[in-house]
Design a protein around this nucleic acid. Structure first.
Length: 120
DNA sequence: GGCGTGACTTGAA
DNA sequence: ATTCAAGCCACGC
């Protein structure tokens, strides 16, 4: 096993967990924060493990619904239990979602570098 | 052990 | 301005 890889996943969960309510971020932002900007796919894959009911991290601790692609489109909503679950969760937090897309995504965008600080 | 897919992003034509 | 292509790493068959 490679501890570094595990750190990557753990870091993704940690960052996603720190996302405040009513805010959203993109896979690329997290990936970039971790130093693997080109590996944004892995971030999404990590989320897949979250939904799958991983050992210590689960959807309750890691709000994957607050993580969307760079366009603010709910690309991963299909992976959720229901089809509208992701959108429902976002709307529940006060985020407007239309046609699987977050309204004013830039306004709700949560930048880990700016909020957490580029202290990696 | 090899090939393809995947919740993405960025860059170049 | 838009469209196409490549890159990244992990997991499944």
């Amino acid at each position: 096993m490679k501890p570094e890889n595990i750190n990557f996943f753990e870091k993704v969960y940690e960052v996603a967990r720190q996302i405040p309510v009513g805010r959203v971020t993109s896979y690329g932002a997290i990936a970039k924060y971790l130093g693997t900007a080109r590996s944004a796919r892995m971030v999404g894959w990590a989320m897949n493990g979250v939904n799958s009911g991983n050992s210590k991290n689960n959807t309750q601790d890691v709000p994957a619904h607050r993580v969307v692609n760079r366009k603010g489109l709910l690309t991963g909503k299909h992976h959720f239990d229901g089809t509208n679950l992701m959108q429902q969760l976002l709307e529940n937090e006060g985020i407007e979602v239309v046609d699987n897309q977050i309204v004013e995504f830039e306004k709700h965008f949560w930048d880990p570098f700016k909020e957490l600080g580029a202290d990696i």
